[in-house]
Design a protein around this nucleic acid. Structure first.
Lengths: 189, 189
DNA sequence: ACTATAACGGAGGCATACCTCCGGTTCCAA
DNA sequence: TTGGAACCGGAGGTATGCCTCCGTTATAGT
């Protein structure tokens, strides 16, 4: 829809040679799973094993844990930004809640996302800002239309939702139910 | 108020000798801090160091990590149960929210509490049940009085709140604000 | 005071994670 | 086909955590 959205610049370059690209992608996929399952402290050697490459290959592509985390994380954030564009046509409240539900639904890195919400690193800050830039208009639309409370800000909403994202629930249904309750809390009565 | 509330049985016995009791208590205090700061994966050796005792002493008192976790955790839960009795005299909605705020406020083991909410272990189950037994009446009162929504159950509420407990916020004020929003979601409109 | 014994605490063996380094291998372009 | 650059991957040094074992020490009862 909007071609001018600046792509999140990943500082890690995708390699040139075919075998190297395969390994790069395998590492990224393995890391995504591992971070989702065990949080940001997941073992890098385990990730390399899972990807079917040596630990050396992991370190060549991603010299630090942060680099790997960023690569995974940026991908997720970018998806969220795209999702924000996709819901832009819906009625304000629906657009907001749809996007927030999608936010919760991104299971892959939800722990990383949550844990990173008040990290200080440069790239995390950039990613967070991109996400905020994507979501804030949705929220402000919902405020303007009189659906969302005026005495709440977007940061509150996002932290509330990401708290719930990270929480533990019996099943998907309960998580949805709880999310609905919480979203009700930001609705004008 | 109600003397019949069954005390949570801690299977770990407090030692007899004076020096041993001192160490036992120091370990418990150190463990409480460590679990609060680093979650359930905190290093046991670090805890022993912090308590000023050898690692052997830690293992003698708490043969497994689970034993130590239980000891800390049970203490916190018991405090919550007592708190539930204390608020029983307030108006229903106020009683519920006061207790839930207290629940959030117990910073010490909030991470452990949250992480344990769907653990399977026997003692964790017992503790959780004690906590539920303490809180459920408050919630049901609030439903009966027409303050709390009927289409929500206590488990939903507790998981919502504990999700927020575990979340990361800029400051206390924001956490309170977000909690207030979420609690608004369970209120009858 | 004295002794039986409960309790201490750290050395040490094992496991695992981090990260570097470099000999061997694979791919691609000419 | 082949040369060499790009790439691979794991050995290995370091650090840290887990847990056990046992020689030493402090305590409580007589």
């Amino acid at each position: 829809m909007d071609q001018t959205r600046p792509a999140l610049q990943v500082d890690v370059r995708r390699p040139q040679r075919a075998d190297a690209r395969r390994n790069f992608d395998a590492l990224l996929a393995a890391a995504r799973d591992a971070f989702a399952a065990k949080g940001v402290e997941a073992s890098l050697e385990e990730i390399a094993r899972q990807a079917g490459v040596g630990i050396g290959t992991l370190y060549r592509n991603f010299p630090t844990r942060q680099d790997l985390l960023n690569a995974v994380y940026f991908g997720e954030i970018e998806e969220l930004c795209i999702a924000a564009e996709e819901v832009a046509g819906l009625p304000p409240w629906e657009a907001l809640t749809t996007w927030l539900r999608r936010f919760v639904g991104y299971a892959a890195t939800k722990r990383a996302i949550w844990e990173s919400l008040n990290r200080e690193s440069e790239s995390f800050k950039a990613a967070r800002e991109a996400m905020y830039a994507a979501g804030t208009p949705l929220f402000e639309q919902a405020q303007k239309s009189g659906d969302a409370r005026a005495d709440v800000n977007f940061d509150d909403v996002l932290r509330m939702v990401s708290g719930l994202t990270a929480g533990s629930f019996v099943d998907e249904a309960q998580r949805d139910r709880v999310l609905a309750i919480a979203l009700d809390g930001i609705r004008v009565r």
